[in-house]
Structures are given as structure tokens and as C-alpha cells.
Design a protein around this nucleic acid. Structure first.
Lengths: 224, 224
DNA sequence: GTTAAAACTGACGATATAGTCAGAAATGAC
DNA sequence: GTCATTTCTGACTATATCGTCAGTTTTAAC
């Protein structure tokens, strides 16, 4: 029937670009305000004001603040997870793998302070009984990504729960250190600080895994 | 002058007891609600309702929610810090010290879920530019307590910044692991889980410190 | 140009929460 | 018992925030 079947969904372009831009302005503004006042205390007006759009525009793009938060955290974590998957795929040596996992985190959060706050706020939210809906999923995906990479780098097949504990420890160590470092060092050279500890972090995590795994990999037998 | 100098400030007791009890009811109720909905989203009415007192009573005891939060976090962290100081004082062996630090945390938060949430929410708040006023102080005291204990257990005197980094790492590892473990394991046997990893945690932290310290303690020379 | 659809607006009504305060109830002193 | 002081109350006001919607502006299609 329709002759010109190819109706160029491509060149409704001006509008498309505007839409994308506005949406992006809102997301970026939200990230900024969230990093200043936290997820809960941020008001919609603050976001729209910073994005320099009318308040109604927010609701044109997002059903609610919850949905926005969901999208931001989901997007951030999916990106981080993808980076881990990409950079770590197939690294068989445990030490190299851990080193890579850590450097991916450092690179990812470097110059993306807002994302780190988002990560951290989201994680704290998970401890609440009534947190934001749907935030667990991307965090679990993130953990699973780390987990599967660890799994294939550890010679011995570990029982699920043990592997999961180790995964939590690895993720927890990285972000936990990061978070306290923020308090102490004014806040700006955290990357540098973390980078300088990378070697020790890798070494101790390697040891941690070797020791936590029930009948450990043969390893080097270092004992103390 | 005044003859009966000892005016028994002791036996205005009924009122004193009532006051203490009411205040305590409010604090406990607040802890509970905070653990459910987080610091920000908790409303005063919710606290007073749970404490089963009128709304005005809250303002009779606390200037504002901020002050209440301050008191709760301060109290919790001071107690934790005191426990660390008491239990770890003078332990010269690094491994034993780390083991003790970890076990103090486990014992402290065991069956005190609300306090752990408080700890975690407070910590996340520290990453914000506009967090709750005055929360940094108790956290810094807490870090300093760990730091001074580590300092005297490490043979070599480390430069301040290095020692501080190591301290952040130790504190971060413990709480970071804890937090992720909560997501994975429904949430109840976290203690058990953490306990089972304690040995590995101690071992890897020992190694971490040995490696992070520039020209490390002689140690056992385990190399990998 | 005209017309239709999409994107955007900001004032507005509805709602929720903070914080106050005049007075009630409990306690202590006598 | 009376009187003074402390503790407690909940209705009330003031304010802040949400989410809506009728109308405007921009874009696309012709």
C-alpha cells in the first residue's frame, strides 16, 4: 500500500535533537543537584531551574522524581557494568583481573563526581526498608558482572554463596575505601590517593580471595 | 551559707525518670523510622506517633530534626569509638589488632540494625556538599581512634597522609563489605557472613598495610 | 503561507509538613 | 489541700512542594 514506505524517521531531526537536548539538560541538572543535596532533599523546581526550563517540562519527560532517579542510577551502573565486562572479559589471572577491576572503577569515577555520589547514595538507599523502587536491580547486575569475572579467574569452582561473599567484599572494599578517603582528603585528589594504593589493594584482595576460598587455589603458599 | 548544701538533686526523681524515659522513647522511635525511610524522608509526626507522644513533645526536647540526627549519630559513633579504644588499646601485634577492630565492629552492630543504617546513612551524607551539619566530627573522631591504634601497632612510623589512607581503607573495607553483603544475603545473617570472612579480612588487611607502607615493616617477607 | 502535532510554560489548586502556642496534665514543694 | 514548675498536648498558621492543565511556542508537513 503505502508507496514511500521509507518515511525517513531519521529527518524529523530538529525536534528530535531538541527533545534529546532538553532531556539531557534535565538529567545533567538533576545529577548536579543530587550531588549537592542528596536524592531525597532535591526538589523538582531546583532541577528545572538549573536546567533552565519550565517546571512543566520536567513532567513532560518524567513521570516523577523516582523515575528520574531510576533512570540515572540505572544508566550510570549499566555503563559501569559494561565497562567492567568489556575490560575484564577473559582475564584469567586473578591478580591482573583485580587490578583491572580497580582501574576500571578509578577511571570511571574520575572526573565524574556526581556519578560517584549517585552510586554511593543509591547504595546507602539499599539498606533502607523503604528505599527507591527498582534500584536493586542495576546493583545486582553490577555485582553479578564482577562475580562472573571473578568466577572464571579463580581456578577452583567455588560454591555460590562463597563466591558471592567474595564479590561483595571486592565491591565493598573499593567503594568503602573511596568513601572514607573523601572525608579525609578535602575531596579532590581522591583519585590520586586511590591510585597510589592500587598495588596494595590488588595484593590484599588476591590474598583475601585465596584465603576466603575454602580449600584455596594452590597459590604460592604465603602463610602469615 | 546554705546549710543543707546537699539539696539532693537526686530525688526530684519521678520527673527526672519521666523526662529521661520520654526522651529515650523519642530517640528509639526516631532510630526505627530512620532505618525504614532514611534520615531525610522521615517526618516529625512519624517519630512522635511511633513514640506515642504529642507532636509538641518533640520540640520540647529537640530544637529540630537536625539536632536529633546529630545526637543520634554522635551517640552511636562515640560509643563505637569508645569500644574500639577500650578493646584495642595497647595491642602491639598488627594482625591481632586488626582482628580486634573487626570483631568490635561485628559485635557492635550485631542486633543493632538501626545503628548500622544510621552509620551508613551518615557516611553517605558526608559525600554531599550540603549534608547535615556537624556530622563530620564524630566520624573523624572514629577514624582517628582507628588511626592511632594502627599507628602504635605498626613498627615503623608512617608519614601522616599514608597512615590516614590506610585508616580509610581499613574502615572502608569493613563497612563496604558489610553494605554489599546486606543486598545479597536477604539481610539477616550478615553478621554470620562477615564473621566467616573475618580471618581472610584480617590477613588481607595485614598484607595491605605492609604493602601500602612505603618501606614496609620487615614482616615475614611473603612476596607474591 | 495553513494546519497539526509536539514541545514547552508557569500560574494555580491541592496537599503535606514544619514549627508554634495557649492551655491541660503531671509533678514537686509546702 | 494550694501554688509553682515542669512536662506534655494537638489544633492551628504559615510555608513549601507537588503535580496539573489551559494555553503558548516551536517544529514538521504540506
Amino acid at each position: 500500500m503505502v508507496a514511500a514506505l521509507d518515511t525517513r524517521p531519521k529527518k524529523r531531526s530538529r525536534q528530535q535533537r531538541r527533545t534529546k537536548k532538553t532531556r539531557q539538560k534535565l538529567l545533567m541538572a538533576a545529577r548536579e543537584v543530587f550531588a549537592e543535596k542528596g536524592l531525597d532533599l532535591t526538589r523538582i523546581d531546583e532541577i528545572t531551574e538549573r536546567a533552565d526550563v519550565g517546571k512543566g517540562t520536567f513532567y513532560y519527560y518524567f513521570q516523577s522524581k523516582e523515575k528520574l532517579i531510576n533512570e540515572l542510577i540505572h544508566g550510570m551502573l549499566d555503563e559501569l557494568t559494561a565497562a567492567i565486562d568489556e575490560k575484564c572479559k577473559g582475564i584469567a589471572d586473578l591478580t591482573s583481573l583485580l587490578d583491572k577491576i580497580i582501574s576500571v572503577h578509578i577511571e570511571f569515577f574520575s572526573n565524574r563526581w556526581e556519578d560517584f555520589v549517585l552510586y554511593f547514595q543509591g547504595r546507602a538507599d539499599l539498606t533502607l526498608q523503604m528505599g527507591y523502587e527498582g534500584i536493586e536491580t542495576p546493583f545486582l547486575n553490577y555485582l553479578e558482572s564482577i562475580e562472573s569475572n571473578l568466577d572464571q579467574a579463580i581456578e577452583r569452582r567455588l560454591p555460590g554463596p562463597v563466591l558471592r561473599r567474595i564479590t561483595c567484599a571486592v565491591a565493598g572494599f573499593i567503594s568503602g575505601y573511596y568513601s572514607f578517603a573523601v572525608i579525609s582528603s578535602g575531596g579532590e585528589d581522591v583519585d590520586e590517593t586511590l591510585r597510589s594504593l592500587r598495588g596494595a589493594l590488588v595484593g590484599s584482595l588476591t590474598r583475601f580471595i585465596r584465603e576466603a576460598a575454602p580449600s584455596a587455589t594452590m597459590g604460592d603458599g604465603a602463610q602469615v
